[in-house]
Write a protein that binds this DNA or RNA. Structure first.
Length: 313
DNA sequence: CATCGATGTTTAA
DNA sequence: TAAACCTCGATGC
């Protein structure tokens, strides 16, 4: 789950549940004890996402959380917490809670299970953070330094709009790289929020050969890629899931392609057997658009997927 | 019960 | 390029 869309959902959820309310912060696992003490008893003013970073402003301090590959936040509490979803790596959903309250009116949380790095608690609910790659409190200087090395985030544009300065930054960043566009688009200094699934799916939809050098990608294709990523990330943030392939996609209609997902366990995990991606994890099967065999190879330690028929220089 | 893998990033070699 | 790190569910023996 944790590509940029997840972090924006997370920031929204923080905004709704915690912002402006005095919270208690602990570290049941014991690995965030000092930071928790620093944040506890105060009221966060703002939660924002920038790419894959969650940044929660508490006075001049900023709580930085990066979920990495398998970090996750889970939420429990009264009915206002019911709609709060677990965000991050897949976790089994907790059973329905029967809220009980202490004398001070605060809900009594269940005992922390497993390695809970941070628990944040407000009167009507709490959230547990497990497995983050980063969890620390930044001062304003450290915050500025972090922001300075992040590229533009397509989700930091108003919905339905392309912000020229962000797109221009993307163009400039690509023009400065000689690595492949596949490597560049995963570089958080070039564009923030894109992970392995959006890389594969955006380059497929934009019809770009992932091996094209970033600085050789024609301007029109750079702009089209930004537009594609903006649309895909926006949809992912709205739906809470990465679904780049839709059953009514006209390309599917043309070929009468079968969109059922036969990967082992996929149907069980997703609750539906309908395939969600064009090329991601579909190596060795016919492309649903052109029929060529979808390719996969290791690139800088990550798996790259593409269709050699649809994606050209 | 051991091993593997995952939508990620940093550090060492 | 490889290993380390953060966690836990799935898979295999």
């Amino acid at each position: 789950m944790p590509e940029g869309h997840t972090l924006h959902r997370l920031a929204d959820q923080f905004q709704r549940l915690f912002i402006g309310r005095s919270w208690r912060v602990t570290s049941p696992q014991g690995r965030f004890t000092a930071g928790a003490a620093q944040l506890s008893g105060r009221a966060p003013e703002r939660a924002e996402a920038w790419g894959k970073q969650l940044l929660v402003h508490v006075g001049a301090d900023i709580w930085q959380v990066h979920l990495g590959l398998y970090g996750a936040f889970s939420f429990r509490g009264d009915t206002s917490f019911d709609a709060a979803e677990t965000l991050g790596a897949p976790r089994t959903a907790a059973a329905q809670l029967k809220p009980e309250y202490a004398d001070d009116g605060w809900i009594i949380p269940v005992a922390a299970v497993g390695a809970v790095r941070a628990r944040i608690h407000v009167p009507n609910g709490w959230a547990d953070l497990r497995g983050p790659a980063r969890c620390r409190v930044l001062n304003p200087m450290q915050y500025e330094a972090l922001i300075a090395r992040l590229g533009p985030d397509p989700l930091r544009q108003p919905p339905g709009e392309i912000r020229e300065p962000l797109l221009e930054q993307f163009r400039v960043n690509l023009a400065r790289r000689r690595v492949s566009i596949a490597a560049a688009v995963m570089d958080q200094a070039v564009i923030a929020g894109v992970g392995n699934i959006y890389r594969a799916e955006s380059l497929f939809v934009a019809g770009i050969d992932p091996h094209t050098p970033a600085n050789e990608l024609p301007g029109a294709r750079v702009d089209a890629l930004w537009q594609t990523l903006t649309d895909q990330l926006r949809t992912g943030a709205a739906e809470g899931i990465i679904r780049t392939l839709r059953e009514n996609d006209p390309y599917l209609g043309l070929r009468g392609a079968d969109v059922h997902d036969y990967r082992a366990g996929a149907a069980v995990r997703s609750g539906a057997a309908v395939r969600r991606h064009w090329v991601y994890q579909h190596q060795g099967t016919p492309c649903l658009r052109c029929g060529e065999t979808v390719q996969m190879r290791q690139l800088q330690g990550r798996r790259l997927y593409w269709c050699p028929g649809c994606q050209v220089r």
